[in-house]
Design a protein around this nucleic acid. Structure first.
Lengths: 197, 197
DNA sequence: GTCTATAGCACGATAGAC
DNA sequence: GTCTATCGTGCTATAGAC
């Protein structure tokens, strides 16, 4: 059934486009159907109701792409580990689909408890957890000064998040992002300087 | 006309409550009227349409309460200036009304261009501008190492923003915020350590 | 400045033909 | 799996009585 799967994905993609610009409530079943090129009723052959579409999208939001394999080994390289993380983070921030999903996250975060829960556990804690582990290794190796690795990880991640938010806001209105984009690398330098021994 | 003004403010307050939890689209004129205790049609004696209510709320979002008077003088005190700023920032983060306005900001930021524009100029740049001026003074005084003061200001502010966001998310679901709340002060210490000479 | 009543439209969702 | 047709509800906003 290749036809069926195709339409289902088309519905999800159209919904992502619409929700990213108008929110969940603004993305009506009518508009989604029109964007796909079918009637509203046909949507219900693929999803029980509108909320099921959102649920599908939420799972896409939390598929973390950063590779945390061989964390300990990578962490021993110190700054280059952080640089590698930021490069991955930057790539995600500039990815078109990921950016739309990020917007949906921001819009619905305060209105959808499931999303909020996942944000706090997945999006937030997972990265913090992994980064703090890496920082702990660096402390043991004597590369950086000691301290609370979780707190440090938050200090590392939060500016990245803010830059991503800023970037995303500028891109909606098609404004220039070049001065912002170099901040990712600057941040690694600044952060490393403040923790390195 | 005390009665009229009273009702108008009641409408705004009810709208703030509703938009903060359900977004602009979710806060219907019906619901706002019901919360105030009047009929929908009576709303239109105070506001031309629904959007006018939102516009009124947006002006409230961007009334910055932090006092930047005697900036140069305060900046010469170095770390205590930053500590003072963070105390004010923390107070705002815990203020009930300000918190609702912050939620509205986050929800509508990606859906309302006016709000986005104001965020980038008022909310974001104003703080960054003032902090960077203060940091510049500190550099001249030899209190901190030199560097791009605007970039440094962003490094200072962005974790505060992230903590505020995190705090706000936890408070919606009535979760404990105590471990997060001390991060404000920790951040000042961490940041100061990384820039002090 | 509030009410009742209503217009006019968009919404999510279902029934049933093809 | 798509269509047409339709239901019931909620929405913003206006008209006009009190």
């Amino acid at each position: 059934m290749p036809k069926q799967k195709n339409t289902k994905q088309k519905i999800v993609d159209a919904a992502i486009d619409l929700i990213a610009t108008q929110g969940y409530k603004g993305a009506s079943v009518r508009k989604i159907a029109a964007a796909v090129g079918i009637r509203e009723s046909a949507i219900y052959n693929h999803f029980r109701n509108k909320e099921e579409i959102l649920k599908k999208i939420i799972t896409e939001i939390f598929t973390t792409p950063f590779d945390f394999k061989n964390l300990e080994e990578k962490a021993r390289r110190g700054k280059s580990f952080l640089r590698e993380f930021v490069v991955a983070y930057k790539l995600i921030s500039f990815d078109k689909k990921k950016e739309k999903l990020f917007r949906i996250l921001m819009i619905e975060l305060f209105q959808n408890e499931t999303l909020r829960e996942s944000f706090l556990t997945e999006f937030h804690h997972k990265d913090i957890q992994q980064i703090s582990k890496a920082l702990f290794v660096m402390m043991q190796e004597g590369l950086i000064r000691s301290g609370d690795p979780i707190f440090m990880a938050q200090e590392f991640i939060s500016p990245l998040f803010y830059i991503r938010l800023h970037l995303s806001l500028l891109r909606i209105d098609a404004k220039a992002t070049t001065p912002i984009s170099s901040q990712f690398e600057k941040h690694v330098d600044f952060f490393w300087e403040s923790i390195a021994l």
